[in-house]
Every structure is written in structure tokens, then in C-alpha cells.
Write a protein that binds this DNA or RNA. Structure first.
Lengths: 182, 182, 182, 182
DNA sequence: TATGAATGAGCTTTCATTCAT
DNA sequence: TATGAATGAAAGCTCATTCAT
């Protein structure tokens, strides 16, 4: 992947970007052809980079989770132990609200990307955030990383619901946060 | 619907039942043809009753929410105010864990059934359960029915996640319940 | 197959006829779409009747071999024992010369229709013709039906060669016939 | 071709060798990309040497026929007049049995290589073999080289038939040989 | 009203061929 | 000259929906 030709790498990026926006708008059932069109690339090129629609979706999730994981890691280093976990949680849910695919995929919806593996990438840094929050006394000791991940996926997915306003989002998260803290 | 011929009504039921099980197994992207097959009915018959695949999905959600709403209502009358809301919450999530469609649709995933309206049906009795729990001092006063509904959808959807065991389900709900109570 | 609806049966026939002529002209690599076009039927209809291009090709071979087999059977009953085998041989080769698919398929060319089974259908009556010719002293006793079938396929296939004129065809078959008789 | 750079010439050979083996295994419908892979050469290189897949196939046939022609010529010089033709016939058919392309192309199957010209190369030495056999009284005078060529192609093609065992091959050729001799 | 065949747009994938590097 | 990524025209196939029977 590192030794891709310059134009190939450029195209790969274009395709991923196009896919991200197309799937964000239309959901994961949007057509590969449309992705190709928005990337201004021939359909065959998409296929060369991602032999299957699923591979394309998988690449997007991986990318997204990678980015989120990095943000979590950076928060784990620089953020306040008491608040970092909550900040990250809020951040993820806000992202999800803006991107259909994000939530769909976080929740394993529809497509076969839920190999579980991609989510593992996120679980580690989330575990760290949780651990630090617990040491700081900001989160109950009984809570485990699995529960946090579950709440994260759940809330992200829910963020797409019609009628889910920023206000509702905050109030709902506040309930969850209270449950974590108490 | 009342003046349907007896056999037509019977078919309608068969189709709904078949659709429920097919979509529960394969998710909402299962083919209408498969529904017809399981209902032992010709494909044309499915479309006569439900002009669109979406209509079929809509009918299932409506039916499901109707049933859930009735259960909520009955709990609101007979159940302990302090526990009824939590019991109902648990019940819904357990149902969702068993049925792919339920969760998908509760969360508005993929298909255009999130006209919002169907969920309204459930919102009323949930509001009642919440109200009684609050009067009994079992739930914080700041919590509103929208938040409960949001948490309900979110958790139901999450219940489909790979690796979501009954144990994890309970621990996750416990966090939410704590957030509601505290 | 007997209980097909009238229009379905009609279409099935149209498709087979179209396929036969399209494949005869363009060879087995012609597109299914073109078959649909010539049959004046939508592409989906072709696939309903023949789920795979191979199935379509298979149906044609089966049909053709069926016809040839019937002709062989009728010759076995009514024809002169001494000449019937040769007449049939000539007939098949002439047919092949006119139809690309016939020869291609008889020889198992390109497509996976050479399950062997279809040819079996023809082998029986050819065996009978051979047997009668041998009893009449017109063909050597050492010759078996397998050899005749092999010569038949071979010559049919060769009949497509560029530069293969009717005259050459006859002279070539005469050599084979001599080899059978002597 | 004579002034090709050394490495270019080497590549040309590698490609031809790869093509021969790939097409021998998979038939003429194998993909050019696979040929490139087996030649351990990039696809572009294949197309630089052979602008068209057909050109590549053509080159293989030419090469093959050249080799066969040389063998025929050498047999015409050194072999026994009475048996050389039959030996050559047998040899060609055995080769064909082992190579899908050989037979396919000898018979003009599928691809447009049957410009007729390539086969001419073989026709000459076969004519010589035939002539000598006839002079030696081993083959009937009425037989012409065209018929022999036709029988050769036909039998080669047939050699690919499923169920065509060495035994059947010999018995079938024996019939043809008898037809030539008698 | 029920049937199931027909429709046809659209999807994923393949592959010969071109062309920037 | 070699490379291999890009192209883009099919191809085969699926499936929601329509409509003749």
C-alpha cells in the first residue's frame, strides 16, 4: 500500500472520500457506481482498489475507527482524566449524527463489516480512557470497557433517529453519563 | 380492512407473519420473494396487500409497536410504579435481541419507515410508565419521555451487535437504569 | 414444464429459437442480451427460464440431440440397414456445417455443457444403426459405437473450418465411411 | 523482430511460453492477465509485443504449426514412406489431446485465427507425406491433402472430448487409417 | 382476488486495451 | 522499453414492481 503509484494513491483517496460522502448521504445501500461518479473515476478503478463493495465499506470503517482511536489516544494523554471519556463519547456521537455510515457501521448495520475486528481497534484506547476516569473517581469501578463500547455504539446509532435534536442528544447522554458516574 | 374477504384477511396475516420471520432472520434487505415463499403465497399477492416493500415493512413495525404499546399500557395499569418502566425497557431490548427487524426498524435503519409516526404510538404509554415511576420517586424528574424513547431505541439496536451477550446486555442496561434513577 | 402457463411456454420457445439462431450465427460466446432482444423478451425473462447462460446452452444441446436422436431412431426403423448409418452420419454433419453451436457443442467446445450426459441420448440410437449395419455386413464388426460417436463429433466440428466446401466434406466422409466398411 | 533488444526478445519468448501453457490449460478464453502473470511480466508488456489477444493466439498457432511442419518435413525425409503419414497423424492427435489450445485452434474454435493462412504452412509437408505414402501404395490415390488436413483437424479437436481415452483414440484413428489405405 | 410470468433498471464484476509514469 | 493503474464497455444476474391470465 505504501508503494502505490502516485496516481493510484491519489485515486484511492478520492474513492474513499467519495464513498464516505456518498454513503454518508445515502446510507450503505448507495451504489458503487455513484461512488465512482463522485470520485470522477471509472467504475473499473473502484473495483481495482476494492474488489467488492464490502471491501470499500470495510475500508471506510477501518479508516474512521482509526481516526477515532487516534483521537481517543490523544485524549488519554492530554485530557483531564475526569472528563476525557465523556468528551470522547460526546465527540463520537456528534460525528455519528453527521454521518449516516458511521453510525450504521459502528452498529454493524446491514453490511458484513461487523467482523468485530475493526471495533477492537477502538476498544483499547476507550479502555484506557475508562481506566483513567475510574482512577480519578469519575466513573464507577463496576463499569467495564465492553459496556462503554456498547453504549457508544447504541447512542451513535440512535443519533440518526428522526427527531433527534442536539438538545435531546445532550439530555440522553447526560442520563448515560450519570449512570456511569454515580 | 374490515371488509376484506375472509381469505384475503387470512393471506394478509400469513404474509405479515412470514415477513416478520424472514426479516427477523435476514434483516430488512431480504427479498420480497422470500417472504412470499415462506407465506406460501404468490408474489403478486404480497404486492396486492402491500403495494411497496416499504409498506410491508411499515406494517410490521406498526404491528410490533402496537403490541409493545399494549404491553406498556397493561404494565402501566397493573405493574409496580417503581419497577414497571424498567421491566418494560428490559422486555423491549430482549425482544430486539431476538429480532433483527425490530431493532433495525426501531432505529429507523435502512428503510424509510422512520416517518416518526409509528414510534409515537409507543411514546404515549412509555410516557405514562415514566410518569408513574417519577411520582413513585424511582426516576429523576428531569428525565423526559423523549430521552427514554431514545435510550430504548439505542439499546435495542445495540442488542444486535456481535458479542453482545445476555450478561453484557444486563450490565449495560444497569448503567442506563442507574442514570435514570440517581 | 408441462404445467407452464401458455405465455410462459410461448416465451420459452421464443427464447430457445432465438438462442439457437443467435448462437448459430455468433457462436456460443454471443451475449444473453442479444438472445433476449431477438426473442423480443426482456432480459429478466431469459433468466427466469434459464438461470444461467450455461443452462440456456444446455437446453439447446439437449433439444438438438433429442431431435437428432429421434431422426436416428426413425432411420433405424425405416431405413435400409446397409445405408442408414451413413445417411445419418451425413445428415448430422450437414446440420453442423449450417449451425455453429451444433458443432461447438457436439464437440464440447468452450462451454461446460459437455457433462457427457446429453451425448448419451444420441449414443443409443447410433448404436442401433451401427448394429444393424454390421448385421447387414455393411460395417466391420470391430467397430464400436464409441468410435462412431467420436468420428461423428470430430467431423461435425471440422465442418466449421474455413475452406471446408461441400465437396471436401463429402470426400472426407467418404474416407471415414470406407474405413468403417472395409 | 531481428533487431529486438536482447531483453525484449527474452520477454517475447517468456510470454509465448506462458501463453502456450495457460491457453493449453484453460483454453483460449483464459485471460491475458493470467498469461502476463505466468510470464512474470506486466500486462502492458504483453500488449506491447502482441497488440491484441488475437495476435498472441495467432503467434502461438503459427509457432505450433511451424514446429509440426518441421516434424512433418523431417519425417518426409527420414521416415518410411508407408508409415510416416500415419505416424505424423498419430503424433499430432496425441499433442492435441494434451493441449486444449492446439485442438481449439487447429479447428478454428472461438477465436479469429482461422485466417486459413497458418494452416497452409502445415499443408505442404503433409502433402509431401501423403504423396510419398501414395507412391508407396500405402494410401489410396483418390485421397487429397485437403481431406487429410480435414481429418487431422477433426480428430485433434475430438481428442478433447470427455471420455476420450487413449484406447478410443487409437481405435478411432485406426478406422480413419483404414479408410485412407483400403 | 390470487397467480406467477414479464419487465427492466441497476448492481457487481470481468477483461481487453490504453496510457501516464 | 517495461510497468501496472485506469479505462469503460459489456456481461451475467437480482429484484421490486407490473400485469395478463
Amino acid at each position: 500500500m505504501a508503494q502505490l503509484r502516485a496516481d493510484a494513491r491519489r485515486n484511492r483517496e478520492r474513492i474513499l472520500a467519495a464513498a464516505e460522502s456518498v454513503f454518508a448521504e445515502r446510507g450503505a445501500s448507495a451504489s458503487t457506481e455513484e461512488v465512482a461518479a463522485r470520485a470522477e473515476v471509472a467504475i473499473g478503478t473502484v473495483f481495482r482498489h476494492f474488489p467488492t463493495k464490502n471491501d470499500l465499506l470495510g475500508a471506510i470503517v477501518k479508516r474512521l475507527l482509526e481516526r477515532l482511536a487516534e483521537e481517543a489516544e490523544s485524549l488519554a494523554e492530554q485530557g483531564e482524566p475526569e472528563t476525557a471519556l465523556f468528551a470522547f463519547f460526546t465527540h463520537v456521537v456528534e460525528e455519528a449524527a453527521a454521518r449516516k455510515t458511521v453510525a450504521e457501521l459502528l452498529a454493524g448495520g446491514g453490511v458484513d463489516v461487523r467482523t468485530g475486528k475493526p471495533l477492537e481497534r477502538l476498544r483499547r484506547p476507550v479502555g484506557t480512557l475508562l481506566d483513567r476516569a475510574q482512577r480519578a473517581g469519575a466513573v464507577r469501578r463496576e463499569v467495564g470497557p465492553d459496556e462503554v463500547m456498547a453504549l457508544l455504539s447504541a447512542t451513535s446509532q440512535a443519533a440518526l433517529l428522526a427527531g433527534w435534536t442536539p438538545g435531546l442528544r445532550d439530555r440522553t447522554m447526560e442520563i448515560i453519563f450519570t449512570g456511569l458516574r454515580a
